[in-house]
């Protein structure tokens, strides 16, 4: 079942001179873990803003074409209706956090939906635990480091247990092991609870192992749409400057030197596995 479906989606910001989205037609199925990538300024964040209705309801501008999220036409439903189904973690956590205490911020969305008190407490505890920030519960979000704020923003969305989680570079301020932990948490939610994930990321080496669907944007258009292996190995991905995982690049430079590994690795684990086989064979 399609969770997100767009047809010919085209968008211009009110003050924009050119189109930020240009004829975007994509389908995201329920339970997929989608990585959305592409050069800086290509429209990734804007597309994410369409998923929960921030575009066009908050930003205004001109939206053409069609977009439905969990069966709801975005143009006909308000941001707060869509928020029940779609959780968005912003690129800059400061734009999302506002309460005086971390705990209050995480509970805010649930309070708005009128979730019973006990249930709120349970879900807040769970979200704080899952993101590893129970110790920050009573701290003020604006006093935290960038990395800690990102965890809080993720906890806020987790607590809502949405059908779709949209995360816009959610770990950019985190160190690699912290980022990996967050990706693992997201991947578990995706697998165990069937939450559909859309992750905007430049660091494909970290994100790709969890993903089964990659979208690459360039200048407002979706230019590649498919499985990670196929997308990363395509000439287009390299030409437009997508950070193709080093494991994939290595197999490409080896092929240029006449060594065919037989399979294209996406992660370093796959690469060493394939290389071991090839090297032992020779």
């Amino acid at each position: 079942m399609a969770v997100i479906e767009t047809k010919g989606l085209t968008y211009t910001y009110p003050s924009g001179k050119k189109r930020t989205l240009e004829d975007v037609s994509i389908t995201i199925e329920k339970g997929e873990f989608v990585v959305l990538t592409g050069p800086s300024g290509c429209g990734k964040t804007t597309l994410c803003r369409c998923f929960n209705g921030l575009v066009p309801h908050f930003y205004g501008g001109k939206l053409e074409g069609d977009i439905s999220v969990t069966g709801l036409r975005v143009s006909e439903h308000s941001i707060h209706e869509l928020a029940r189904h779609v959780g968005l973690v912003f690129q800059n956590p400061e734009n999302q956090l506002f309460a005086l205490f971390v705990e209050k911020d995480v509970a805010f969305g649930l309070e708005n939906l009128g979730v019973p008190r006990d249930e709120i407490r349970k879900r807040v505890d769970w979200a704080l635990q899952t993101t590893g920030i129970e110790n920050l519960r009573e701290r003020a979000p604006h006093e935290l480091s960038g990395g800690q704020q990102q965890r809080v923003a993720i906890a806020c969305v987790l607590a809502m247990q949405p059908d779709v989680m949209v995360l816009d570079e959610p770990t950019s301020f985190l160190d690699p092991s912290g980022a990996q932990k967050i990706f693992e948490v997201i991947s578990e939610l995706n697998k165990e609870m069937g939450i559909t994930v859309v992750l905007v990321e430049h660091r494909l080496d970290l994100a790709s192992r969890y993903s089964n669907h990659v979208l690459v944007m360039n200048e407002g258009r979706v230019v590649l749409d498919g499985e990670p292996r196929e997308v990363f190995n395509s000439e287009t991905a390299r030409l437009i400057g997508v950070g193709v995982p080093k494991a994939t690049r290595l197999s490409q430079v080896l092929e240029e030197s006449g060594v065919d590994l037989g399979r294209v690795p996406v992660t370093s684990g796959e690469a060493s596995h394939i290389l071991k086989e090839v090297l032992r064979r020779d």
Binding site: D175, P176, G178, S268, K276, L279
Partner: peptide
């Protein structure tokens, strides 16, 4: 330092027993 080795290093650490 809680960092992760570069991808290339990760691959070659796994291949150490082959003498690379």
């Amino acid at each position: 330092a809680s960092i992760v080795p570069p991808q290339i290093t990760q691959i070659f650490l796994e291949l150490a027993d082959l003498g690379l």
